[in-house]
Nucleic acid binder design. Structure first.
Lengths: 254, 254
DNA sequence: TAGATTGTTAATCGATTAACAATC
DNA sequence: TAGATTGTTAATCGATTAACAATC
């Protein structure tokens, strides 16, 4: 991370300023809450995608108004969201795209490679392996595992499928041969296997779990975990459909 | 656009209370806010899963305390969440599991079959097809489509893969042969194809779109849409990892 | 300059949590 | 009964939106 002059170092506590690239206000807040506004963090990937696609068109700057328009939001919200990355723009011009991409990627930790093991090479696991998007987010799936003996030795996306029992050994290999540490475990195994897989991954040194199994995992406090619940959005959708059905039939009656 | 909660629903009138199976209080609230609390709707599927698994153990009642414990939440929140379905419990006993399952499923619209077309039979599309969970949520994928000529005619999960151009014709067939209407389009196609696929689906009569493509779709106001963004949770996870890294190194310095 | 746009403080809105009476 | 639990109102918290000065 470079300091290109626009940085607000003087307003930051010396140490954090460099490390976190955060405005002082947010640093102070984080001291207490220990958390950034999650909704903002969640919106950043969409912004980043748009910004990159605008960059492809040869543009070098972009305004909040433009981003907000795209997503049907207000420009103030976009500005607030971008602010958590520490970026600053210029009135009338907007934000420099190069700076913005860098700031978001750094803030999300996407400029750093995340070494991961993926367990459960079904359709979902394969989807994640084959989607190039995640590679551009720094995700490097080092090894893949599956409990199905029939799959062992098969190659998916250039990776040999190994037995789940090999997890500890492969983590050791990663450490000793490459000096890398296991950063993340991606669990795309069925629910009934998820907890034991998680235990193995944590034991092997994983500091983060990206869990697709529809089950609440028990994990040590120092392991961060995100659960992906596909049913969540399905529920919102079908609930809205039902509300609409009722409203329409209601209107028809009146 | 659809899912930012600002989609201006028509206000509810008292009579709707029965149709929607909502407590009057919430109906009155909805008159103003025009929306049910989305976070609550999103948590219901997890509760439902737990409740069903508890039912398997032969239990007939469950308390909020028990549910809250499982998910590390407060019992008040669970109670509030369940309340939106219109269910009532009994002090000391809790909620009747049979009633609860029925109330949640009805509220989410999962007791009704949702007839859907799925477009894009890659790994992600196949994952959705093969995951039995969604069938239990009422999802019935009638037909599947793909743009890849090599896949045409192949069978996935008992369904023949058809060309995207067949969507209108197949919707007509569905309507005329079975009397069913197309309820939902599931888009698991790549981003560049998503908008044209959405247009086709809407034209064919789809009233809802479940979109996995990382792109903001332009849709008529009366079509409900939910976007699944896998990058969202990845962003939260890697951001937390980075925060933690800095906090730890920070601690080490001091 | 004029007007678009940023950054920030204050106001509003919505969701969560606290408090507590009702009740099985 | 006593105590666990529900249902509901009030208080708090956090996120969004409004207002507006600064500035390019």
């Amino acid at each position: 991370m470079q300091n290109n002059g626009r940085s607000c170092e003087r307003s930051l506590r010396p140490r954090d300023a460099k490390n976190l690239n955060l405005p002082r206000k947010l640093v102070m807040q984080a001291q207490h809450s220990h958390n950034l506004p999650t909704p903002s963090v969640q919106r950043l990937p969409s912004y980043l995608r748009l910004i990159k696609s605008v960059r492809e068109c040869g543009e070098t700057a972009i305004s909040c108004t433009r981003i907000a328009e795209e997503f049907g939001q207000t420009s103030v919200q976009v500005r607030k969201d971008l602010a958590i990355t520490g970026i600053t723009g210029r009135p009338k011009i907007g934000y420099q795209i190069a700076d913005l991409v860098e700031a978001i990627e750094e803030f999300l930790g996407w400029n750093v490679t995340t070494h991961a093991f993926l367990v459960g090479v079904g359709n979902l696991g394969s989807a994640i392996l084959n989607y190039e998007g995640f590679a551009s987010h720094g995700l490097n799936v080092v090894d893949v595992f599956d409990a199905n003996p029939k799959l062992l030795g098969t190659v998916v996306n250039g990776r040999v499928i190994r037995p789940v029992a090999d997890i500890p050994e492969r983590a050791k290999t990663l450490r000793e041969k490459t000096g890398k540490t296991l950063d993340m475990g991606v669990i795309t195994a069925p629910a009934h296997a998820a907890q034991s897989v998680a235990d193995l991954l944590v034991k092997a040194g994983a500091r983060a779990i990206w869990n697709y199994a529809p089950i609440q995992l028990e994990l040590p406090d120092d392991v961060v975990c995100e659960n992906v619940k596909l049913s969540e959005s399905f529920a919102v959708l079908t609930n809205r459909m039902r509300m609409r059905r009722h409203r329409v039939s209601d209107r028809a009656q009146s």
